[in-house]
């Protein structure tokens, strides 16, 4: 997969960024802008906020690339975690603005989709979405509420009117099942 990236790994790029290589930062941006922007749009539901946070995320990557420890996790996980936590911080800052989660943000915002990047992540997207579709609806819902709305277990329990214990079980089962479903398929994409 991703043949044009085969020569330089994400880890190499992060190491270069840590050595103040601007070009490496630009490459990392080109590689992940679409998936990260998609994530930020889903959480913030505002192009303006999402672009602002995307900028913050990459400036943080620039400052903190030296902290990245390949023993402790993968670059993709590091980037997504960074982006998600920044976005959720911003979301809290903006106040719990009313958002319709399930309605696709994409339909209301002009999609400046690019054929090349579209193909870039399409395979992973398909795998993840297929795996999610296999989860029981409540498990999937619990995962997505935590992931895209940044809700804690108690907040989810309150939101859904479900006992906390049930939320905990669903979250655990859901993520473990997802890991199992993704394990084999994602391995081939690494």
């Amino acid at each position: 997969m991703q043949p044009e990236q085969a020569q330089i790994t994400d880890i190499d790029l992060l190491h270069s960024v840590a050595r103040r290589d601007e070009q490496a930062l630009a490459s990392l941006y080109d590689r992940y802008r679409v998936i990260l922007f998609g994530l930020l749009m889903r959480i913030l539901n505002s192009r303006e906020e999402a672009e602002d946070v995307l900028q913050e995320v990459f400036l943080q990557v620039w400052r903190r690339a030296g902290d990245f420890d390949e023993q402790r996790g993968r670059p993709f996980t590091w980037l997504v975690t960074l982006a998600r936590s920044r976005a959720i911080d911003r979301l809290r800052l903006l106040g719990a603005r009313q958002r319709v989660v399930e309605s696709a943000a994409a339909s209301t915002v002009a999609a400046v989709s690019d054929a090349v990047t579209d193909t870039l992540h399409s395979e992973q997207r398909e795998i993840v979405q297929r795996a999610l579709a296999e989860l029981p609806e409540e498990q999937k819902r619990t995962l997505l509420l935590a992931y895209f709305e940044g809700l804690t277990q108690s907040e989810i329990a309150a939101r859904l009117g479900t006992p906390l214990g049930t939320v905990k079980t669903r979250m655990r089962s859901g993520l473990l099942k997802l890991r199992e479903l993704l394990a084999t398929q994602m391995m081939s994409l690494r």
Binding site: L39, R42, R74, A111
Partner: peptide
């Protein structure tokens, strides 16, 4: 982290 791929429901967006 893979859940990030679930964010893109329709066409991917460009910043």
């Amino acid at each position: 982290a893979y859940l990030a791929f679930a964010a893109i429901v329709a066409k991917p967006l460009e910043p």
